[in-house]
């Protein structure tokens, strides 16, 4: 399978170009920590190493990425497009986002199947709206890269006793792609994690290693299941908004409480459905109207209406 670049043994000592590892995820997951451990090991082993990240928005649930490049000589701290040897993703959709950075012929993809759904994905209010999250599965990825591993690292780490150790489990997975001695990894991890969590971190590190090794041998592995997203319910019901104008005193409650913000007070201070296409028929206005002026009547809609 390895074409051009020797794939399963990325030994910087034998390479003119640096080894490139891209670590990605969402703010708060520990992306920077993973790259710090890797960078430290490389430095301890005498390689030149550069680690670059942009984290201005990281704390606010934004995208976080860290480029780690190491070898005998490293110039750019960022990995050129299509030159990453390994892509480590702490979150599923983030792994897909950065796929373009992987070497098309030899790149190794290792991703946690954990989904962190952004509020933006739950935005569409159309009846039967689909969640705006990536629908791609590990099988889609496996077709397109040299080697792909999708494991539920977060679940495995939770079972081992610390959800936050998921990133160390992925470090274990990463370690199988690099020729560094096991002890070097463990020493650095033990040095960098809080003392109370050393044991669990070292345990999940080994678990990550074993997972990749077993998976490469084609052995059955736990934590490899991928739960597909639930598809939207088909619902063609629409509701008809009507108001008894004489009863409306313009108190504004329905206007303020409408989740779709599709009601307004008209010039006569009477509530009016200004944007009927936005109404989802949630009944809030009907329930909250102190004067029983609003009623919503369900009416079935044609399939293609």
């Amino acid at each position: 399978m390895a074409r051009g670049r020797e794939q399963k043994n990325l030994d910087p000592a034998n390479m003119t170009e640096p080894v490139n590892v891209l670590i990605v995820g969402v703010g708060g997951q520990g992306v920077i920590m993973v790259s710090k451990v890797l960078a430290q090991i490389c430095q301890d082993l005498g390689y030149q190493v550069k680690q670059s990240e942009v984290h201005g928005m990281a704390k606010r649930g934004g995208v976080v990425f860290s480029h780690v490049r190491f070898g005998n000589n490293v110039w750019s701290p960022t990995i050129p497009m299509g030159k990453a040897d390994v892509l480590i993703a702490l979150e599923w959709a983030e792994g897909l986002r950065w796929m373009g950075y992987l070497r098309p012929d030899t790149g190794i993809f290792i991703a946690d199947t954990k989904r962190i759904v952004p509020p933006f994905a739950c935005r569409s209010r159309i009846l039967g709206a689909d969640i705006g999250y990536s629908k791609n599965t590990p099988d889609d990825v496996k077709e397109k890269v040299a080697e792909a591993f999708a494991l539920d690292a977060t679940e495995m780490a939770t079972k081992a006793g610390n959800e936050r150790a998921a990133n160390t489990l992925l470090l274990g997975a990463l370690s199988t792609t690099l020729p560094f001695p096991n002890q070097a990894w463990k020493d650095v991890i033990a040095k960098m994690v809080p003392p109370k969590t050393i044991e669990v971190n070292l345990a999940v590190f080994e678990q990550g290693q074993q997972w990749i090794t077993a998976s490469r041998k084609g052995q059955p592995v736990e934590g490899g299941a991928f739960v597909p997203l639930v598809q939207p319910e088909i619902n063609r019901n629409r509701t008809q908004f009507s108001i008894t104008e004489a009863w409306c005193k313009g108190c504004d409650i329905c206007v303020k409480m409408c989740p779709e913000r599709c009601l307004v007070l008209n010039k006569d201070q009477v509530a009016e459905l200004a944007e009927p296409e936005k109404c989802t028929g949630c009944h809030i206005c009907e329930w909250l109207c102190p004067d029983f002026a609003i009623s919503l009547t369900p009416m079935p809609q044609e399939a293609n209406a």
Partner: peptide, 16 residues
């Protein structure tokens, strides 16, 4: 020379 492309998820920074 780029690797495979998938449609990226929109993930703007948000208030905590």
């Amino acid at each position: 020379a780029a690797g495979p492309q998938f449609e990226p998820l929109i993930r703007p920074p948000v208030l905590c």
